[in-house]
Design a binder for these strands. Structure first.
Lengths: 191, 191, 191, 191
DNA sequence: GATGAATGAGCGTTCATTCAT
DNA sequence: GATGAATGAACGCTCATTCAT
């Protein structure tokens, strides 16, 4: 599947350049060069730069979901489910720092806003594992009686800062620490 | 003072455009037009675009600090100090959503990283109110025994998500809710 | 080779515009227009305007050297060698007046000074035909015992004025006259 | 005469900046600053930058003439007159290197061409001391039978190179050397 | 008369996108 | 299908000149 290899190379090159230098620090010509393809070739796989950026985000999002859902059971107790998702996410971002930085860049851009709006206002079948978890937690009266988005913020907001500081080398986020942060977040949302 | 009015117009125009469209969505020519000045005029007040961006950040940072320190006493109990800072910050960002969006953009850029690095690795006398608070909290054994940066993440990470969702209109962040979130964050960091 | 044609068109356009209007009288946009290419195309061949200017000089310098060395033998008597170089150079500049004006502009610019410094302070193996000639002339005690740079000035200084006045049409510099000027210069440097 | 002091300061500032950095390296604002006047003030004394440049050249030209004509007698023998002018000119340029560099820049610009054209095609009463000297030399059959402009080139062309190399520090042009070069130039033009 | 803040045309340069090969 | 040379609009920035004070 030669075609897909090229597409993957382009996505990989875009990931590295954008994660490290931001959207404007990643000209199409450089992405092409890094991917080992011609500049025009990118446009065979992606309509334009915006589409490339959005599709790359979707791919990363998909990988993240796949990873954190491994071993996840929506039948388990709320606490367990929460800790599972939280810790897996920490591990993922620490293992794939470029993904973290890309996703961060993405969310701080016009794309990100639209994306978030879609997700939140999206249809039920498209619903997030996270929101499902919090809904269950509310129903079971295990979590504080707060809006879903607030619970989400309390649960995953700290991660953005913590992972960023870890990636930039301000401190070391090891397994013990991840465990502790996850527990602390649980303290924040549990009733 | 006519001179300062012009400078302020430029800063205000930059704030609006950058907050709404990002750094690249705010060309100097547009900032000038919106500020009602000639393109070259900006350069009488700011050496270049980078300097404009950095000075705007510093001005906002100053206003934020001034606001949240109003009525703040570093002699009060940790809990009270924390809730004061946390709630004031929520209020500030809700009252000045453009400031919030600007600061967010800023922190997700080379400027922001350098700035964060300076702040974290800064000298003790230059220290942040926030870090001071957490240090005191650790000394008094009121807070969980976690690295300062983790405590910071737990305390203020949720705000980024919550305020963003509020500004984008996904839900209403009223005083009651702010109170509850602040308390929840306290639950996250208190021993 | 189509590629080189474009590069040559750019160099030719730059030559004409700079020779006639100076470095600032030759904006890149105008060079591009005259060369029949897009403005950005220039940058595929030359890193920036400075590089374009320098490379154009090197090309001209190369052509000059190639031309004047045709039929030149460093084994001939000093006088013959001198007259050969001198007259060939006159002919060249009369045949390519744009080259003359370009080289003049170049030498009266930061580029030119640096270039001259390099040439003068250059290593022996890199040495100029002219300096070699004067060194030989000194060794053989055929020339006045003066510094090399003075001999050079005496030998080629007059050419700058004479060719310039010819090009601007103030008088006609024909073969007889060239012969006479060359002889007069020889009178100036010979012992 | 306060007004003239300001005018002189402007001319002096322009001289230094243009001599050292060229016409484009000398923005009006910088000239004004260096002259200790407001930017707009320059336009009270000079219609625009071109006029300033031209008038500065005229002033320098006047000073040069005044200097070299000191002790000059058009009744003296040709050789003596020539050596007098030649050596005085060397001395002048060595004493006022900024004047030399300014005049050089000027001659390599659209201004210079027009200026030279005017002088050469100018009326008899406006005639140059130099041309007068060569005319006399021809009449007296002391000089080679060559066009005036050629004689001029032979006589003063070497100076441009020699002084330039001296100013840039490539060698030291002392009194003995000046004497020798002047004599060598005489050898070039004398019959 | 003197000022210097303000101007905006024009510069060198970049880069997403196209299209002939 | 793949290429990469070519494009030109748009960028950040400079500076000769103007004009209200």
């Amino acid at each position: 599947m030669v075609k897909c290899e090229k597409r993957d190379e382009i996505l990989r090159a875009a990931l590295v350049l954008i994660a490290e230098h931001g959207f404007h620090g990643a000209p199409m010509a450089l992405i092409a060069e890094r991917a080992g393809v011609g500049a025009g070739t990118i446009y065979r796989y992606f309509e334009n730069k915006d589409v490339l950026i959005i599709e790359l985000f979707r791919e990363i999002e998909g990988k993240i979901k796949e990873c954190i859902l491994k071993g996840y059971s929506s039948e388990s107790p709320i606490r367990e489910r929460f800790l599972h998702l939280n810790k897996k996410l920490y591990r993922y971002f620490i293992d794939f720092p470029l993904h973290f930085r890309y996703v961060e860049q993405y969310h701080n851009s016009p794309y990100g806003v639209a994306c978030r709006r879609d997700k939140i206002l999206g249809e039920a079948d498209n619903q997030d594992v996270f929101l499902k978890l919090f809904e269950d937690g509310l129903t079971q009266r295990v979590l504080k009686d707060l809006p879903l988005l607030i619970l989400f913020s309390l649960a995953f907001g700290p991660m953005v800062f913590a992972v960023r500081d870890h990636i930039f080398g301000f401190f070391e986020l090891n397994d013990t620490l991840i465990e502790q942060v996850a527990e602390a977040c649980w303290d924040g949302i549990k009733r």
